[in-house]
Simulated assay, not measured.
Amino acid sequence: MRKAPLYSRSPRQPSPPAPAAAPRLTPEDAAPAAPTAAAVPAKRRSPWRERAAWATVGLLLVTLGAVGQRAFAPGSQVLTQKDIDASVRRSLEKDPLPSAYAKAHAAIAPSVVRVEGDDGPDDAPAQPQSTPKTAKKKPGTEGGGPPLPNHATGTGVVIVDNGTILTNLHVVAGSKRLKVTFADGSESEATLVGAQPEHDLAVLRARSIPDDLVAATMRSTADLQPGDEVIAVGFPFGIGPSVSGGVVSGLKREFRSPQGQRKLTNLIQFDAAANPGNSGGPLVTMDGSVVGIVTAILNPSEQRTFIGIGFAVPIENAAAAAGMPPF
């Protein structure tokens, strides 16, 4: 029987062997030889399966490496909440965050103005006819605010970026000329455009304003509670702008001036330091929003200084004085 030829992958063909005597065939030699692996066409492999196999192997190696590293790492421990807290404390000690008071002050500072009033010349602008004229009283008779000498100093807060400013009526009452100084140092004359005597509020309008004037954000007092942190910003004794911090001490308080000439109701009581010159300034929450206008301090003695009890008119009343809709 003729023997099946075998093929080699080598490009070179071997030289044909010299003729030799035909070997004697045995029954095993007579059977055709099984084809070699080179002669059998390889089964086509799937690229997707090959990639999946390599990915599985890689994942296994990574997992084994991580387990081995943890097992052989000297003194390795499981990270606990205590470790995290300690790390946070170390970071804060190295680079402390600004206080809540500092953040609140940064938010309101561009809107706080210094308000000054004096008698001025005889031809200075008078108060509007729609506003009741209030004669200038002797020092010490202006409720809880600073006394009004010939030159009065108080505080105001910008509530509209067109130069509309809220302050206390007792700060500007009787003044024929008003001047406001903005946060950037620029000055402007101002006129009285509205008043609400029952809440000791006055609305001013600056004649010229900075290009980048920022109006304060106002917030309802509906959710204000005793214990909420607040700051008072103003010009106590003409110094400032100055900021003091405290908490809301109470709500819906009443205050009557020492002479009994004026009674204010529905006031916010607070313990952030306020002194003559703070009148008309904003009472501000920690998110930088105005919730009241500082209007009075309580001191049973003859001294007109702060002993821990201040009062502010809720911003709802102040907004109404400016003709703004309620919250």
Score class of each variant (00 low, 15 high):
1 M>R: 15
14 P>W: 11
14 P>F: 07
15 S>V: 10
18 A>K: 05
25 L>V: 01
28 E>D: 15
42 A>K: 14
49 R>Y: 14
49 R>C: 04
64 L>Y: 04
65 G>I: 05
67 V>F: 12
68 G>R: 06
76 S>W: 14
79 L>Q: 14
83 D>A: 12
88 V>R: 15
91 S>G: 03
91 S>W: 06
92 L>Q: 08
100 A>L: 15
105 H>P: 01
119 D>E: 11
125 P>E: 14
133 K>P: 02
133 K>E: 04
137 K>V: 05
149 P>E: 08
151 H>S: 01
151 H>N: 09
152 A>N: 12
154 G>E: 01
155 T>K: 13
157 V>E: 02
161 D>V: 06
164 T>W: 02
169 L>E: 13
171 V>M: 04
175 S>R: 01
177 R>F: 05
181 T>P: 02
183 A>T: 13
200 D>Y: 15
214 V>S: 10
216 A>S: 13
219 R>E: 13
221 T>S: 00
222 A>N: 12
225 Q>L: 07
226 P>M: 00
228 D>S: 05
238 G>T: 09
238 G>L: 08
244 S>R: 12
250 G>R: 12
253 R>N: 09
266 N>K: 11
271 D>M: 10
274 A>V: 15
275 N>A: 07
276 P>V: 01
280 G>T: 10
281 G>A: 04
281 G>C: 00
283 L>Y: 07
286 M>C: 00
290 V>T: 10
291 V>H: 05
291 V>S: 10
296 A>M: 05
298 L>K: 08
299 N>A: 02
309 I>H: 01
312 A>K: 03
321 A>C: 01
324 M>P: 05
